[in-house]
Amino acid sequence: MDIDLPTVWAGIIAFAVLAYVVMDGFDLGIGILFPLFPEKEDRDVMMNSVAPVWDGNETWLVMGGGGLLAVFPLAYATILPALYAPLTVMLLALVFRGVAFEYRWRSDTGSRRWDVAFFGGSAVATFAQGIALGALVQGIAIEDRAYAGGWWDWLTPFSIATGLALLAGYALLGACWLVLKTEGGLHAAARKLAMRAGLATLAGMGVVSLWTPFLNPGYLDRWFGWPTIGFSLVVPLLVAGAAYGLWRGLTRGPDWLPFLAALGLFVLGFAGVGISFYPWIVPFALTIEEAAAPEESLVFLLWGSVVLLPMILGYTAYAYWVFRGKLRHGEGYH
């Protein structure tokens, strides 16, 4: 049998990153929305709605990073130094928000402080992730199997734009999660917020999509050349469909619809990035093929992934199922 292992692996890594983005996306989004809900009871509910699952969500980040090291070591070894500062900031921010889940319940006087840490950590981590994405899209300098740029190269107007767009996007996911999981006043407020965050997200996606083709002629070709122009026509239509679903869900629809529509927007945005990149892993500098680990490594880990990933998805789904349904005020896990 002759399968193109590097491409299969690119697909698996892309899946892990997407899983991370949507899953940690909504719990980071909860943190981003924290300042808009000053009441302690509301915050308790918001926190509790993600407390049983956030650790699993964040594990996809380890899967993305660890997977890259295993199957595309050269990409890991060039992208991470290029994104040194944003990634370091992201990791530190994740420390703050991660411990807030537990610390918040451990002190009465300090609980406000950990609310601030939760918000700050979530917002900064999101912004840093957006910047990292933008920096990767605009390309990084590689020579001799090593990063060859400066340590501020990641900071450009474009990467700031992607950072802001991701903030809006995660806030949208968070708000839609709250629509799904809460009732009463919190629920009503979340609907309003989701509407605004939805508009901001669409605006962000629009700006980034229009900007990208002008970063590099390669992208221009990809989006307006034959046959890929087909995608350029279909993707915006699908985005419009998802946007309609979101609007419909937030005005009249069932509580699960907005979350589903928001997921749809993320999948489409992600597909857009995928179309721009393929077959590069670092745009215009390193292809999937060049970055791939030797076949022995790819095969060895593939066996495990084929068996284990479905199991992981299974018990993850079970964990979500156990904690399904709406949360009420005062009902907590702590």
């Binding site: 699993g56 899967m63 660890g66 090291l69 295993a70 680990a293 490594s297 495990g304 156990v322």
Partner: peptide, 27 residues
Amino acid sequence: DKAGPVIGPLMGYEVLTAFFLEAGFLG
């Protein structure tokens, strides 16, 4: 870059077999 092909898959298995398991059942 140099050792990734050897140690990377082992750490990959750590994520697949251990970290997901812990995180999935911790809640």
